[in-house]
Design a protein around this nucleic acid. Structure first.
Lengths: 190, 190
DNA sequence: TAGTGAAATTGACTGCGGTCAATTTAAATT
DNA sequence: AATTTAAATTGACCGCAGTCAATTTCACTA
């Protein structure tokens, strides 16, 4: 399933990704147009779709990479000893996920809920996060009557819920972090 | 803010909705095209967008109405006395929400996480569900150390999570209802 | 009932994601 | 070096959501 071996191919792919990243950093995720990307990369439109099944796939790649970078920060921290500390630890990641409506929708659409057959970068990042959280929960002072992996999945469920409310014009209050604290104290301390 | 008073307007709007529903029941939600709807309704394309800000708004209306119908069933039930019973009660609703990938994505996008200024039908349905669940939780044999509304919001968070996994090709097991049972027993019985 | 201003309707047009048959390029074989 | 073959690239083209200036229809008034 994996043999994209040809210098040219790799070069083109790299050019496409670099062009997309440049455009995104200049104009934001939502403003990224395939036509702009190929123009910037100096290739034809069809080439884009020879490299990526669709626009979302490239987005998955780029956003997933950024999420992974944020997770590196998270993974580097010592296991939290309180819920507040746990939230503090994952906030950089959460802030990235929720910093922009377009990326939030994209991430939700690709988080484990993969529409496609294979796990994409975003879905893998979510899996990685579950692993990190599971370890934390297994060793820290949190409830032990529930499988730590289940607890970890619950954390994801709750912060997705919080972000959804955060993007809702009416439910902006209380702010995300406060709301998440309420949920997680009820979830992790039984 | 509300004065759509003109017979013609209401008639056209009704025709558009009826046409859309007919197409949806024949070909499914994902296959609904604005151009087909207006052709079926016998109006011009521009008319559609004079009545609805975009395609999603009509979908919101139709899907929201269906969800509300399902919620009527739920609201009619007696308050559940166990987690299993609670899940049993809301299953019809959950089955509708998750019966189709397209509607699931639509619902998530509009559930409280309204991209627009006002609450749409789907968001209102979610609010209504919170109210029903809150009453159940306040009166039934469930944990009392957490605000029942928070518990209700948690249920939503968990079943969304379950549905996301349900749509994921890899995480299909265990089936939705089993997984939800695990989550809710841990969440509602402290 | 003729006139008038506002609201509803129209359809050609734009933007953008995605397709595909034809063409070019690069690597393998003689 | 010439030939073959598979892969990469091309760009004209399509489908479909959404726009808007021009036109028609309606309700209200003189």
């Amino acid at each position: 399933m994996s043999k994209p071996l040809q210098k040219r191919t790799l070069a083109t792919r790299a050019k496409l990704i670099a062009s997309a990243e440049k455009i995104i950093s200049a104009k934001g995720y939502a403003a990224m147009r395939v036509e702009d990307v190929v123009a910037q990369a100096g290739v034809a439109k069809g080439t884009f779709f020879a490299h990526f099944p669709d626009k979302d796939a490239l987005m998955d790649l780029i956003v997933g990479a950024e999420m992974d970078k944020q997770l590196d920060q998270v993974a580097a921290k010592a296991p939290p000893q309180t819920v507040d500390e746990l939230i503090e630890h994952i906030m950089p990641f959460l802030n990235f996920v929720s910093h922009d409506r377009y990326t939030f929708d994209l991430i939700i659409r690709h988080s484990g809920a993969g529409a496609k057959e294979e796990f994409g970068p975003i879905a893998l990042t979510f899996e990685r996060q579950i692993k990190i959280l599971t370890t934390w929960l297994a060793t820290g002072p949190f409830r032990k009557d529930v499988d730590p992996q289940v607890l970890a999945e619950g954390i994801q469920a709750f912060y997705v819920q919080c972000m959804a409310m955060h993007f809702c014009s009416i439910n902006k209050e209380p702010p995300m972090q406060i709301r998440l604290t309420t949920y997680l104290k009820a979830w992790l301390l039984a």
